[in-house]
Computed example of a mutant assay.
Amino acid sequence: MMSNCMGVTGMFGKRETAVVVLRDADAIAESIRAALADASEAERPGLERAAALVAAAAEGGDAELRARWVRRRLADAGYEGELDAVAAVKSLRQAEPGLSLVAAVQLTKEAAAR
């Protein structure tokens, strides 16, 4: 899971936005395993599928997580173009108004590379 952007002030007083990556897949996986222990036969296939989806989502590193977040934010904003285009940067900044230009460029480039 990725959090929303948080504003931080740099050493020169310029406001930058940091994108904080939060991983809670372990806690979710543990909850699903606990549910599986007490699951009925009817519930088991759905929980097993959920466990597989959580495991797959947890496999990627931070860069992959950020790339998925960028794609999702752009899709939610209705953007359908190339990820490394100026229009993608503009759409991402409109979707996340606190995101700096530098951060938006970096995030879209990173997403395009994945």
Rank of each mutant, 00 (worst) to 15 (best):
S3T: 09
S3C: 11
S3K: 06
N4A: 10
C5G: 05
G7I: 12
V8M: 13
T9F: 03
M11F: 10
F12C: 10
G13T: 09
G13Y: 02
K14P: 09
K14V: 01
R15M: 03
R15W: 00
E16V: 14
T17L: 00
V19G: 04
V19S: 04
V21A: 05
V21L: 08
D24Q: 15
D24H: 14
A25S: 13
A25C: 13
A25M: 15
D26A: 13
A27H: 12
E30M: 10
E30N: 07
I32C: 15
I32W: 14
A35F: 13
D38P: 03
A39D: 11
A39N: 11
S40P: 03
S40T: 15
A42M: 12
R44A: 08
R44L: 05
P45G: 12
L47Y: 14
E48M: 13
R49C: 04
R49G: 08
A50E: 07
A50L: 12
A50H: 13
A51I: 03
V54F: 10
V54I: 11
A56D: 08
A56I: 09
A56M: 11
A57Y: 00
A57M: 02
A57F: 03
A58H: 07
A58L: 06
E59S: 06
E59G: 03
G60H: 00
G60A: 02
G61C: 08
G61F: 04
D62E: 08
E64M: 01
E64S: 05
L65S: 10
A67N: 02
A67L: 04
W69E: 03
V70T: 00
V70F: 01
R72P: 03
R72I: 10
R73T: 04
A75W: 11
D76W: 09
A77K: 11
E80P: 01
E80Y: 07
G81V: 02
L83R: 06
A85S: 14
A87P: 10
A87T: 13
A88G: 02
A88Y: 01
A88M: 02
V89Y: 10
V89C: 12
V89A: 10
S91A: 15
L92T: 02
L92F: 04
Q94G: 03
E96S: 00
E96V: 02
P97N: 01
S100R: 02
L101P: 03
L101D: 07
L101V: 15
L101A: 13
V102I: 07
V102H: 09
A103T: 10
A103N: 05
A104N: 08
V105E: 15
Q106D: 14
L107G: 09
K109T: 11
K109D: 14
A113Y: 02
R114A: 05
